[in-house]
Design a protein around this nucleic acid. Structure first.
Lengths: 371, 371
DNA sequence: CTGAAAGCGCTAACAC
DNA sequence: GTGTTAGCGCTTTCAG
């Protein structure tokens, strides 16, 4: 059907513009534009003519031009710490899906938890004129790059990690309480020697100041953990809490170190699935049985955790909902222009599977918490 | 420093444009533009003036405008089947990182292996005028949406899955050979009854025509498997190969079905980590020990696979390299304008861990392959 | 080396 | 309802 003619049009010629469509449909640019963007200021008849013309020309709207004059790109930016981490990965998917549902696409940039990369990412995104940005901040107290002239670079929401004193909407989970809850579960099964393996990008800094200066998730989990200990009058044993970067072998080493202590902790809380894997691996090497000699609770559920034997008890976080909420919060800012910092904190869910063993009567909460 | 003045400029006024910078630096728009984009047709002195002016105004280049007039957006599109799958997730990260290294950002769209979504995604991306697109095609033989007027919508490369007869550069791995190799490993340990669990989006279609109509990865793995069987003169037993959608419980059911057969296969090959997890879960429920009653090989390595006991033997695929290669191939097309279909096929690596048990003397390759 | 002016393709007043 | 026109902010000849 019209092979050669079509070829001449589409092969060598530049992409058809709206004037071409208008021309073919025998109307003005404006009318064509209106018809194409579904304005109701056009007759059904002309709309049809235009649509057909567009179709036959294989017309694709030039989104750049549209964004430029409309002042909206229908694109949002996501600045994430590490997509290949199963938590952020699922959050990313939630964000992309939710955005798509609202006709937005997502420009994703990975920072590897590197502040410099984050600064760069925010700059690039704002230059690309995204309509809003979701960021997983890699530092709890550096925020210059998020503001320009005292206002956020663009509609902005923080994901997963809070930045104290920064007036920006934030979507997080209540990890502090979950850590306390984990300790309670351990205590209720008679555990009194609890360790913790903390997996974080800046393990140096974190270990140096005991989770001060760490991102809020780490901070919350560690302080929830120590709070829990206090609740039961259990001593806080610094050596039982290990910090490690995101490298399996290092994490295993840290885990082994904790498990080599004498007396050895009977229960370990880990800050994510990778850390849990490290504990398991360490136990393998040391011939300690998970759920027997070593009880385990991990933040973040993952597919393998429930298949593993014993199935791993986890703090399941509402990842998808978190991503969804972030997008929605962002869209509200975009649509309303109101950038007020409305934050939401979602609840986690402790899934008690098989990795926390009963080793004796429950420890009683202390009326005189230690320290 | 100049608080109130700065405020007046940045608070209520629109974002500074290049003329503002030019003005402040006391040069023309053209010169400012040149200075800002690092052209060498400007004195060091003026460049400095301009840069300082830009700095003091908090100037951010309007990327849309630039892209529009330059005809390049420095953005590429990624149309992926399912980011929350650990393979695609790592590929995505590789793509984003590699692109970033070349100053490109990535617009990611998820299709969930749905063709309609894929068509839509490609359209949106081409409208957004990305400089190129990487797609994981959800169907091996539908490609209209990738072409317009006989030419690719944009520079284009296919990732992970081939489309026979479609002249587009493709980056894949040699899964056919790997499947054969898996069979050989089983056979070398005395296994003669081998099953396979195939996890795919369109399990209906796939099971209906025995992996015809399935995406190339599935097709290759299944035909490599049967080829391997033939090599050893082993009978192809249709009931030993199960197809299942990406839902854990369904997959477990399919696995149990295979493992309930009499005689039961002693070895299972799975097409991905999730399917492997399903087999493991099925074995848990049926009280069969992996690496004892049931040997297992899975496509795709994953963090848990090496920690699991017995450690799972896997076909490790060069995910990161794959994503990297896709971006590089795309950039070549973008930079050269030469859209010739140069494809690359990378080699997988079978990692022999502990899940394939020796159960008897090696089966000998047959001189008279069955069928 | 620098400046003036013509687009890039679309939207949005503002007329008719 | 439809057409005219003036930008959106940048790049890029083409002069000087």
């Amino acid at each position: 059907m019209g092979e050669s003619v079509d070829r001449d049009r589409t092969d060598r010629a530049r992409a058809p513009r709206i004037v071409d469509v208008a021309c073919l449909a025998d109307v003005s640019k404006a009318t064509a534009a209106r018809a194409l963007s579904g304005s109701d200021l056009v007759t059904e008849a002309t709309r049809l003519k235009v649509l057909q013309a567009a179709e036959s020309l294989n017309y694709r709207m030039n989104g750049l031009a549209r964004a430029m004059s409309a002042g909206r790109s229908r694109t949002i930016g996501l600045v994430i710490a590490d997509i290949s981490n199963s938590f952020f990965d699922r959050a990313t998917r939630a964000i992309i899906d939710t955005a798509a549902r609202h006709d937005y696409q997502v420009l994703v940039i990975n920072t590897d938890d590197d502040l410099r990369a984050e600064v760069q990412a925010v700059r690039v995104l704002s230059e690309k004129r995204v309509d809003g940005i979701i960021v997983v901040p890699s530092s709890p107290d550096t925020f210059d790059h998020l503001f320009v002239g005292g206002k956020p670079v663009s509609p902005l929401v923080l994901l997963d990690r809070r930045m104290p004193n920064v007036p920006v909407g934030t979507v997080t989970t209540d990890d502090y309480s979950s850590a306390v809850e984990a300790v309670r579960l351990f205590a209720s099964r008679g555990h009194s020697r609890m360790g913790m393996l903390v997996n974080s990008a800046d393990s140096h800094e974190a270990s140096a100041n005991g989770a001060n200066g760490a991102v809020s998730t780490i901070h919350d989990r560690v302080s929830g953990f120590t709070k829990g200990l206090k609740e039961y009058g259990l001593p806080f044993e610094p050596a039982w809490i290990g910090y490690t970067p995101h490298v399996h072998d290092d994490a295993v080493r840290a885990a082994k170190q904790i498990l080599s202590l004498d007396p050895r902790p009977t229960a370990i809380l880990t800050t994510n699935a990778d850390a849990a894997l490290a504990v398991i691996d360490a136990c393998n090497e040391m011939h300690l049985a998970i759920g027997e000699e070593v009880s385990l609770i991990s933040f973040d559920d993952s597919p393998w955790a429930r298949v593993f034997r014993p199935a791993i008890t986890v703090v399941d976080r509402p990842v998808y909902e978190l991503g969804e909420a972030a997008v929605k919060a962002l869209l509200v800012q975009i649509d309303s222009g109101d950038m007020h910092a409305r934050s939401v904190e979602m609840q986690n869910h402790l899934i008690d599977r098989e990795s926390v063993r009963y080793i004796g009567p429950p420890i009683a909460p202390s009326l005189f918490p230690s320290r």
